[in-house]
């Protein structure tokens, strides 16, 4: 199958001469959720900024569907790739949530009805019925973040990029992000996540790309990446606590990586008959 996002041998050098990403190859297909992991300054953000043309590759090529990002305008690419910035304050400026949602469609000069249907869809997806006339600045930070996401979704891009969606969110907010990501996938969107939240990736159990010092060092299923101690150490990452726990306890299947508490409970139920003696692996 043709990938929807295709990144071929892309390097990016910033005007100051700093190489932010080096020779990256990455294909993302329809229906995928891709998490991009790595320490600060490893090039995650630089990589995803190539998806909607905010940055153009210094060498190599990025294709979104049939569009070559080098030749297209950011405004056009943005109707295919929605990018939700980390801080919603950088984009919110209209006096009501409704206007905020319609803003992207207006920029694309869509008709009144088209805008209405798209905004209505975003309202349904995010359950924003009660907040439509509120001023975004009166909302709390997780609600504002949700409005920011909804305003990007209103354009209904094929791909949605979330830049650290759970940073600074309370537990409820994080759970909401998890729900939303799953819902985006069900609605047929490709989701690209930049995050440090290992718990979130564990719950999503999705494809994981690990960046370290401008290079891609791993690209596999979360369970495979999280069990590879070398890669985790190289990128300075810690797997979710429950994975760590399962790795240290001898009774769990050493060939499997447990990403969530539920998966451990499942295993325990399946092995109930046995007299489980729990000891640490030496």
């Amino acid at each position: 199958m043709e990938p929807y996002i295709s990144v071929k041998n892309v390097s990016h050098v910033y005007p100051g001469g700093v190489t932010a990403i080096k020779d990256i190859n990455l294909d993302i297909h329809e229906g995928e959720i891709v998490a991009i992991l790595g320490s600060n300054g490893s090039g995650k953000t630089t990589l995803v900024k190539h998806f909607n043309g905010l940055l153009k590759p210094t060498t190599g090529e990025v294709k979104i569907g049939d569009l070559n990002t080098r030749k297209e305008r950011i405004s056009k690419l943005s109707s295919h790739v929605g990018y939700v910035f980390q801080n919603p304050n950088h984009q919110t400026f209209l006096p009501s949530v409704r206007q905020e949602l319609a803003y992207g469609c207006k920029n694309l000069k869509m008709s009144e009805e088209e805008t209405d249907t798209r905004v209505q869809r975003a309202i349904e997806l995010f359950q924003l019925h009660d907040r439509l006339d509120d001023n975004p600045f009166d909302l709390n930070s997780s609600q504002r973040k949700e409005v920011a996401m909804a305003s990007i979704m209103a354009v209904s891009p094929k791909v949605i990029v979330l830049d650290e969606p759970t940073t600074g969110q309370d537990h409820k907010g994080c759970k909401r992000v998890l729900e939303l990501v799953k819902m985006f996938k069900e609605e047929g969107h490709i989701v690209v996540l930049i995050t440090h939240d290992m718990h979130l990736i564990g719950e999503l159990n999705c494809r994981t790309v690990v960046m370290n010092q401008s290079e891609k060092i791993a690209d596999d299923h979360a369970s495979v990446v999280f069990s590879d101690k070398n890669i985790m150490a190289e990128a300075g990452l810690q797997p979710p606590q429950i994975t760590h726990f399962a790795n240290e306890i001898s009774h769990f299947d050493p060939n499997r990586t447990y990403l969530t508490v539920e998966s451990i409970l499942e295993w325990m139920e399946a092995n109930q008959e046995e007299d489980v003696k729990v000891g640490t692996r030496s």
Binding site: I74, Y83, V84, Y103
Partner: peptide, 27 residues
């Protein structure tokens, strides 16, 4: 960048560019 990600065309006509000052400067 955030406004461009919301499909704002920054390379439009002069009138368009003047209009763009609001989404730029308000945030």
């Amino acid at each position: 960048e955030a406004q461009q990600a919301r499909c704002l065309d920054v390379k439009g006509s002069i009138i368009q560019r003047v209009k763009n000052l609001v989404p730029m400067f308000a945030p």
